[in-house]
Design a protein around this nucleic acid. Structure first.
Lengths: 197, 197
DNA sequence: TGTCTACTAGACAGACCTGTCTGTATGCCG
DNA sequence: CGGCATACAGACAGGTCTGTCTAGTAGACA
């Protein structure tokens, strides 16, 4: 569970203390929620003094925002790791990532959806960071759909986003046995059944 | 927003103090989250003594569970209010409820998804209550799909559940302009385009 | 050696949390 | 009238939270 956060912030010039804080926070926030995990616990498990923490993150919300951005970076890295493929295969591969994530031991759903649920105010910086990731992903889908020759990529991207969020929820709350098949079925049904199976 | 909680717990024999607590909690928990809202705030706004609160709800988590069950009751009531229709029209009407809810001023997404995000442990009573609501809804969709003549209502219900959750997320986080159209488009595309428009 | 930087250790204030407890007021029923 | 249930008011204990502050330590570099 801590493993996928072990390959750290690549900007190597950053403080190691800061990295330890962010990694610990990423693990704990994802596993137990943002409000449940306190600063004291994070600095204890990161092996860092409180003053050091507040040097790098002036307030807890700043850390939460960094956590969201870190998750965004990890998500983008996972997509980068797929490599180059035709547009339609690319979309299917991206959706397969949901099944990959759901198969991991500590899976607890989508970090962005979980975090958003804890911040009611849509104008809050944390919510904005979440929104940035969402619109990045939407744009990615949109351009892939356009490359696939979709006549209305905007609308199709909306629907695919809906499907993606729903699949993340289902993979977490309902844990369906045949998740991979459900994903394929959902995506193909949405993209038009002229699918390359 | 407090309005739709005004038509209270119909089991009229219940204590009015208990009802006031549950109604206040329903409003506050939904609007601001479960962990953010404390007991003191609830009893103050419900106009109830602390001892009275702990008489009816031995612990806060009991209240949260009652809150989830209350939301489940409200959701079922909304579906009951639709009245009788052919299966396919019924499904569309149920999905339209998402748009209705999203149009209300205090809309903050799906109460079940929000609450689930705050309880990591899948075995927690609150999560179980959420699971009960979800499987109730899944079964409802399944029987409607069967009545509509769907060849594989189980799988179709899975996909519709995915779509429903995704639409609830989208209507909350992305606030798309043409939500009603997005809903129709998504549902019809999933149920097979031989739709009755 | 002296100094500067980054860090550790941990006390502390002030707020807020859940849950318990004591005492009081009100109304119903016999 | 007495007895009992229900509810209110609020102090209190014990814990946790965020965020500040003081004091001390280890290494780099001149």
């Amino acid at each position: 569970m801590a493993d996928h956060t072990a390959d750290i912030t690549d900007t190597g010039r950053e403080s190691s203390a800061r990295n330890r804080i962010l990694d610990t926070a990423t693990t704990l926030f994802y596993a137990e929620g943002v409000h449940t995990v306190g600063i004291d616990r994070i600095i204890a498990e990161a092996g860092v003094a409180k003053a050091t923490f507040y040097k790098y993150f002036p307030a807890k919300d700043e850390l939460v925002r960094a956590y969201v951005q870190n998750q965004s970076r990890l998500g983008r890295a996972a997509i980068d790791r797929i490599g180059k493929r035709p547009a339609r295969a690319m979309i299917l591969a991206i959706f397969d990532l949901v099944a990959d994530a759901a198969a991991q031991p500590g899976y607890r759903g989508c970090p962005f959806l979980n975090a958003a649920a804890e911040y009611p105010d849509p104008g809050h910086p944390v919510r904005q960071a979440i929104g940035e990731h969402r619109s990045w992903k939407h744009d990615l889908l949109c351009s892939l759909l356009a490359a696939d020759g979709n006549p209305d990529p905007e609308t199709a991207a909306d629907i695919l986003t809906v499907a993606g969020d729903g699949l993340l929820i289902a993979s977490h709350l309902d844990k369906p046995a045949n998740l991979r098949q459900l994903i394929r079925e959902t995506v193909l049904q949405i993209m038009g059944s002229s699918a390359g199976r």
